[in-house]
């Protein structure tokens, strides 16, 4: 598996995939995509990176433990539902706001944060599984 070509190309491939996964996540509300798919793509990226270059570089690149990322995602999703409670609306009711960044109108919503949370949970959990299994190869 750990051929020279694969090892050389893997970091670039992985970063491209992660970038693509973020793109898929963000466009998910209007075009095919979303947190689940984006998360799976990113998780595959880390898995490929891990197979090619070993688990340690991946853990370094991630900085946080994958399960911590996963837990953070669950927290983000849960908190995004709490916002509506302050407006006397049921848990998880979507809230929208328009934010102007550099003169561009951008729609920000709790839904977006919810989807980001889904993305993080999926990335974290599945990367954790993949890394745990890859690590055992060298034990």
């Amino acid at each position: 598996m750990r051929t020279l070509i694969f090892r050389t190309i893997a970091p670039y491939l992985a970063s491209l995939m992660v970038l693509f996964s973020v793109f898929v996540l963000l466009r998910g509300h209007n075009e095919p995509g979303g947190g689940f798919i984006g998360g799976l793509i990113a998780a595959s990226a880390f898995a490929i990176y891990g197979i090619a270059c070993g688990v340690a570089p991946v853990r370094r690149a991630l900085y946080f433990h994958p399960m911590a990322i996963s837990g953070f995602g669950l927290l983000v999703s849960g908190l995004s539902g709490v916002v509506s409670l302050f407006k006397d609306m049921p848990f998880l009711t979507g809230q929208w706001a328009e934010v102007h960044i550099l003169g561009l109108a951008v729609d920000i919503s709790t839904i977006l944060f919810f989807d980001i949370g889904v993305y993080l949970v999926v990335v974290g959990a599945i990367t954790s599984i993949a890394l745990a299994l890859e690590e055992r190869e060298h034990v």
């Binding site: 509300h29 839904i111 974290g124």
Partner: peptide, 28 residues
């Protein structure tokens, strides 16, 4: 949202999804 499937997942049935990502995390 224009992607109806995604809107159902993250908005209309958000609570289900919250439960489901919890399951994914617990499995992890």
């Amino acid at each position: 949202g224009r992607n109806i499937v995604n809107v159902i997942i993250v908005d209309f049935r958000g609570l289900d999804t919250l439960g489901e990502i919890a399951v994914v995390m617990i499995a992890g």
